[in-house]
């Protein structure tokens, strides 16, 4: 136990502060400090998932900025979708989206969810979230960096 506590104290706080402008923007949002997001993998290669996981590490610490990954779509304000939307995930994706209460936002994460990426044109994928849902925002990148994802989350929820 001692070793563990010592390590915690020695490590200190690593979380990087968002830039002043970003923070101000996010403060004014409807979901200020309490954005619940649900992730659906619609057939990604798991590269985007690695970066979504990275949002939870001490450097980005999305939860300390009020962005929280929730287990049920019914608790969510936003749906993050990754992958080129495989036929096999189509129905599950729609059902998950329907379960998210209004007002909700849908965000496409990564090149595959934006337009199918390298998998576009295959018999097994629909190719891009737009084919089934209207995304409120898109984060291109293969995979997009955690910073890109955070920036879009902040922007998508800024009051206009």
């Amino acid at each position: 136990m001692w070793k563990l506590l010592k390590k915690i104290i020695k490590t200190g706080i690593l979380t990087e502060k968002p830039s002043h402008r970003d923070e101000k923007e996010f403060q004014r949002t409807a979901f200020s400090k309490s954005l619940a997001v649900r992730h659906v993998d619609a057939g990604s290669c798991n590269g985007c998932e690695l970066e979504l996981w990275a949002l939870e590490n001490p450097y980005y610490s999305a939860s300390s900025q009020g962005i929280k990954f929730v287990a049920s779509p019914r608790h969510a304000d936003a749906l993050l979708v990754t992958g080129p939307i495989t036929h096999a995930m189509h129905e599950a994706l729609l059902k998950t989206q329907e379960a998210v209460p209004n007002p909700r936002r849908v965000i496409a994460i990564g090149d595959c969810a934006c337009d199918g990426g390298v998998f576009a044109g295959s018999y097994a994928v629909l190719g891009g979230l737009e084919v089934v849902l209207t995304p409120d925002a898109k984060v291109p990148g293969c995979p997009p960096t955690p910073q890109d994802i955070l920036n879009i989350l902040r922007k998508a929820f800024a009051r206009t």
């Binding site: 993998d41 990604s44 080129p84 495989t86 096999a88 995930m89 599950a92 390298v118 295959s122 097994a124």
Partner: peptide, 21 residues
């Protein structure tokens, strides 16, 4: 099989560098 993207089909007819991607 939910993440089946038809990779074998996608490889067909690509150049080596596209295949690498």
């Amino acid at each position: 099989g939910y993440a089946h993207k038809g990779v074998d089909g996608l490889f067909r007819g690509r150049t080596i560098m596209e295949g690498a991607k």
